[in-house]
Each structure stands twice: as C-alpha cells, then as structure tokens.
Design a protein around this nucleic acid. Structure first.
Lengths: 246, 246
DNA sequence: GACCTTTTAATGTCAGGACAATTGCTTGAC
DNA sequence: GTCAAGCAATTGTCCTGACATTAAAAGGTC
C-alpha cells in the first residue's frame, strides 16, 4: 500500500529534478514495489513531502503518463496501469535494441558505396534524383540466424561513412558520435513476399512473408538524415508499441 | 517569413488556451502558411504578444513537438519539421481512419457471441482461462475489396455488445458512447501467412502474407477492456507512425 | 586569417500561487 | 430505501517570476 516509493533527490546533480523523480517512480513500478492498479499519492502532497513545487511534480508524473505507465483521472487520482510495460518503439536502431536484450547481435556489411539515388530515395532525402548518396546494405544476425536485411541511404556530406565502424556500432550510434542527433522519424510498417535475393540472404524460401519497415529520420534541424528500407524475418521480429491518448 | 500565424484566442471558451494556440499553429503548418524549415518566433515574444504566460505558450508548442511537427533546439529556436506529416498511429479504430479519409468503409459482422476465452485472451484481459468473454469477428471492406479481418475479445459486464450497431459505428466509437475511454493501448505488429479460412474471407490465396496486429487496450482505470487480433491485406494497408525523441 | 573569448538569444528548469472542473462520497430529504 | 444536493478530494489550467544551460554570433587577439 505504498502511495510512493522512497525517493532521494540530488539537487547538485545536473539531472533535472522531475527526471530524477520520474526515474525512481518508474523503477518502483517495474520492480513491483507499486502494484498495477495502485493509486499513488496526490500531486500536492508528493510535491510538499519531496520539497518540490507542484509543476515539477506534475512534470515528473507526466513523463510516466506519456510512457503509458500511469493514468490520471481528474477528481480521482493517478493509478499504475495494468499490463506489463513492453518496450515501445523508440528512436534507436535494431542493434541497440538487441544489445540491450543481451542477444549478441552481429552485423555483416554487404556493401557500402556511393550510388545515385532512386526516385523515392531522392524524394525522401530531398536531393535531386540521380544525385549521389551513401548506399549501405547490411545483414543482421542473432546468433547464427539472419534476422534482418537493411538498406540505408544517407546524403553525402553529412558524414563520411567510409571510415565508420558499422560492424560494431550500428548506424544510429555512428551518427550520434558524429554529433548528428535524430529527433523525428517517420516509419511505415508493412509486409510483402521475399524476393529471391532477399530469401537467399535471410535463409528463407522465395516468396516467404517478410515484415518491412521504411523509415525516414530527421535531425534537430529538420533535415532528412537517413532513409531506410528494412526487411525482417517475421518469426524473429515484431514491432511493439505503446499508444497513449492525450 | 511569418514567424507565427494569425491567432485568435477566445478566453470565454471552455477549450484550453494552450490547445487553441496549438490548433491554429497546426493548421498554419498543414496549410503551408508556415513552411518546413521556418523558425517560429521565440516563446517569450509569442507569449507576450498573445497575452499569455510563457508556460501556457510552452505547453502549446510542446503539444506540437510531441506530434512531431515542430523541433526545439535550446539556444537556437523552434523550427517546423520537414517532410509531410503522415497520420501517426493513433488510438482510433480502422473505421474512424477510413471514414476520415473519405473511403466509405463497410463492415460485415461475421459473428458476435459469448465464448470461453483462450489462454492468451484470458491473460491479456486478466480473466480466468475459459471464462466467458465477448467474441466479435468482423470483416472490413473498402469499396468492394475486403481489407481486414478483425477478431476482438471483450470482458463481459463492461458493455452489452448485443445491442450495439457495430456495422456502422466501429468498436471504439461504441465503447466511447458507453462512457468507456481508452487511454493506453499496447500493440504488436507482425506478419505471417494466411490460413485457408483467412484467405477465403480476404479473397487472398492461401499462404499469402498478411500484416497482423495484436492490441490490448486499457481504460482510464487501467483495466483491460479489449484484446484484438487483426489481419490486414498488405497491398491495402500499412501502419504509419511518427516517432519523436523526448 | 585563424583561434579564442565574450556576448546574446533562445529554450530548459523550477518555484509558488490561484482558481476551475470533475469525480466520488456523504448527508439529508422524502 | 432511494434519490438528489452538497462537500471534499484531486487533477487541469493559467499566472508571474527567476535562474540555468546551450548554441550561435560577434568581437578581439595573436
């Protein structure tokens, strides 16, 4: 029946206070210290007891509401949502995802070269059709099984991929280390039959269903940074997402 | 070069001020009155000119940032994101989606009955295995083409589906009208071959790839109110989503 | 001209307060 | 006993103010 976890604040830390509070609430929820369905204490009391202002406390709770872990009801209170919280689709690469899950991913670079952009790629990256772009094709494994075939296109001049260690760090981590921060991405998830070439690479039969994802990512200047066409083996991969009504 | 659209505020309206501002900014962006890449005026000036406080103005901008339409950069400003804003995955039903797109959807109810919950359904809805739940199966058309086969399971007692007009209103609208508000939903998107029964219903060949979506929806009390297993024809449907880094 | 420092401008964080709106419960009348 | 009015609890909205942090631009020095 704890209406709140034990929370310690470090005011000298550069980590924002609302974030510290949110983190510790999240840990308490994930560990089960606060059970699903439990009501947490009201904002005013929490703020007073922690020595915070109410807006700061509200901001902490809001971040968890946005994550789908808490639900607020005016006149009632704030509750922990039922149902285990699956990881939602995030702005991270598959490599990061797998590494976090401890699955030991491995990447094989099939090719990395400069080539003219096809029509769709040019449109997504906002370059002229036929203009040169980086073209990267990779095959990702979990253990010995091929998992995904990934084709990425990046505008030239943004980054020099030739020297990047793409086998060990993932595309997004490579971009981050070059100071390129992805802020917005638009994805389209679909499904189609494997081509012969895809089937060979992924060790599937020709015509097997593949889960596909197209993504265009934009940096914090709103510029298109990456366009990708990926294909996943559906027995090994799916997209989990949490939707929250505002 | 407009740093802002013309904004009118109605302080007597029950619609929150921050929402009024966000709506009008959104309209200006969608209409192209503010072009992608344009920087909008800074928060302080906007707040002053509109006669609002800065937190309110910030809240307005934040809602659009959350939607992926704007990007903020500390020390720099706030910009309109490039790339047309596709509809993101929202907490609405397919019926709502299609109706909004003016596609004239049509729904055929294949069956609506009470039946014992299988293991997965029972777990998702948090009822005992074998307990009775509503079982609803529908086939959705766009024009003459079957688009999706939808199987939904709802706990009994929450709502009486027997009298609902599911052919014309969609499941979520029906729930809304009964005072049940969906606040959080978890989805898993995948892909597999069609079974014979599915292929017949969807006018596909047996073994054709189908896009699948599993969803569990929770109301504002955190209770599971719906579990669904849907299958879509991949030539006619895909999932678009916008991801935003927080 | 290249490089470092300072300035400036913008968003990020936080405080404290006030009132509104909604909900659920209690109390009272019938 | 039942129903409705009132009340208390809780989140929603909005205000004013302050300082911190970051990034780009401007300026000065070598």
């Amino acid at each position: 029946m704890p209406g709140r976890p034990a929370i310690t604040l470090d005011r000298s830390s550069p980590i924002p206070l609302y974030f510290q509070v949110a983190e510790q609430f999240e840990a308490a929820i994930l560990s089960g210290a606060i059970a699903p369905g439990d009501r947490i204490d009201n904002e005013v009391d929490l703020a007073r007891d922690l020595g915070l202002s109410r807006p700061t406390m509200r901001q902490a709770i809001q971040t968890l509401v946005d994550k789908g872990m808490l639900v607020r009801k005016r006149g009632v209170g704030t509750q922990v949502v039922h149902g285990k919280v699956r990881r939602s689709v995030e702005l991270t690469s598959l490599y990061d995802d797998l590494a976090r899950a401890g699955q030991e991913p491995r990447t094989e670079i099939l090719h990395l070269r400069r080539s003219p952009a096809d029509e769709e790629t040019a449109q997504e990256l906002r370059v002229a059709e036929g203009a040169e772009v980086w073209s990267l094709e990779r095959l990702r494994f979990v253990g010995d099984e091929p998992l995904a075939l990934m084709r990425n296109y990046l505008p030239i001049g943004l980054i020099d991929l030739a020297g990047a260690d793409l086998e060990h760090h993932g595309l997004y981590a490579t971009l981050r280390r070059s100071g390129i921060l992805i802020r917005v991405a638009r994805q389209r998830i679909g499904c189609r039959r494997a081509t012969t070439a895809e089937a060979t690479r992924l060790r599937e039969r020709r015509g097997s269903p593949l889960l596909t994802m197209q993504r265009t990512a934009y940096d914090d200047a709103g510029q298109a940074v990456e366009f990708g066409r990926h294909a996943y083996r559906p027995e090994l991969y799916s997209f989990d997402l949490t939707l929250v009504e505002r």
